[in-house]
Amino acid sequence: MTRIGGRIVRPGAVVEGYVEVDGPTILEVAAGNDAGDDVIVPGFVDIHCHGGGGHTFTTGDAESARSAAAFHLGHGTTTMLASLVSSPFELMRDATAAYLPLIEAGVIAGVHYEGPYLSEVRCGAQNPDFLRDPSIGELQELIKTAAVRLVTIAPELPGALEAIAFLRENGVAAAVGHTDATYEQTLAGVAAGAAVGTHLFNGMRPPHHREPGPVIGLLSSPAVCELIADNIHLHPGMLAFAARTAGPDKAALITDAMDATGMADGTYDLGGQEVTVAEGVARLARNGSIAGSTLTMDVALRNAVAAGISLENAVAMASTTPARVLGLADQTGALEAGLSADLVVLNPDLTVKRVMRRGVWV
């Protein structure tokens, strides 16, 4: 049995005490004095990530995916989706099949298709050559296994509402994103079953006081809003505003990281498009659009706290809420007895000290 002491971040509170781990499971979380200055948080859950450490999820290469997951595990992400970008159907199908053994081994929790069912005018760094209208025929083939966890769709596209409803009926979460939808079209997507807003503000029609658009539609709906807390995609003030408006149960920190994360500045590839990374900011070479991030979840947590979000709320956004999105709240995402021993020991300045996954230090 392992006993880990410090300031323990639990839902809605920070308490001094100890987490007792027995094998892969949390046995008990107990209050106690003189537990130390470390900050103990549940392992981070990243539902939107394209790669890291020089490795990518976007090509369907299983070894690259394994290495990308290992890189982010070192930064405290104990559960994550492998996010593809807009791609031909064949790549989506083959990548999903290639990643199934990694899912079965617990390396990743599933696959997220960020595209190709996206708005051309709001595609951002997505490759426009691969965009197309939602296809239930494609989705039927792709979700034959339990590998697919999340699909981003622009709800204004022909057939989008039917596709969102189809995903919901088959136990796959749908997200509204890369969209030029009106406020009403956004709410229609949520009513059809969309449970997530893909990187709120980014890749969306901007809010207007006479046409609120998808940002306000998502914030005023039950959908969980993804937030990229890298201080590039969102100003810290906007991050804090969105987090306060949504609340910690309806906001999820994500990285949207690409393979350049943790690497030197230079030229990289994302979905067949050249990306230039300078001073840690990734942009498409052809038009300067922001192209994913070089963020890790531990930095996202620190940025959220620096923006004025309380530590307990930031941790809920980094772990508890995204675990619920994936249907894994009964397994991970909080420091509670009976859940998986996925946790991160942080120094008082919230930098990573140690990471435990399923009871094993990594």
Rank of each mutant, 00 (worst) to 15 (best):
R3V: 14
G5M: 07
I8A: 01
V14Q: 09
E28H: 13
N33K: 12
I40R: 10
I40W: 13
G43I: 06
F44P: 01
F44G: 02
I47T: 13
H48L: 13
C49R: 09
G54P: 11
G54S: 11
G54D: 06
H55W: 13
A65W: 03
S67Y: 00
L73W: 03
H75G: 03
H75F: 13
G76D: 08
G76E: 06
T77E: 10
A82E: 03
L91I: 13
A95R: 03
T96V: 14
L102C: 14
A109L: 01
Y117T: 02
L118N: 09
G124K: 02
G124Y: 00
P128D: 03
F130R: 13
L131Y: 07
L131F: 07
S135D: 03
G137L: 05
E138C: 09
E141F: 04
I143L: 15
K144W: 03
A147N: 07
V151L: 03
T152F: 09
T152R: 05
L157C: 04
L161E: 05
A165P: 00
F166Y: 15
E169L: 11
G171Q: 10
A175K: 05
A175I: 10
V176K: 02
Q185S: 05
L187V: 06
G189C: 06
G189K: 05
G197Y: 01
T198I: 00
H199L: 08
F201R: 12
L218W: 00
P222S: 07
A223Q: 05
E226N: 11
I228W: 07
H235C: 08
L239N: 15
L239P: 10
A240G: 00
F241K: 12
F241I: 12
A243I: 05
R244V: 08
A251F: 04
M258G: 10
A260R: 00
Y268H: 11
G271R: 15
T276W: 00
A278L: 10
V281I: 14
A285C: 05
A285F: 00
L301G: 10
L301Y: 07
N303H: 14
E312H: 14
V315G: 01
A316T: 07
S319R: 08
P322H: 01
P322A: 02
A323K: 07
R324L: 00
V325T: 09
A334R: 15
E336V: 13
E336Y: 00
E336K: 15
A337F: 00
G338L: 00
D342K: 08
D349G: 10
D349K: 12
R357D: 01
V360W: 06
V362K: 13
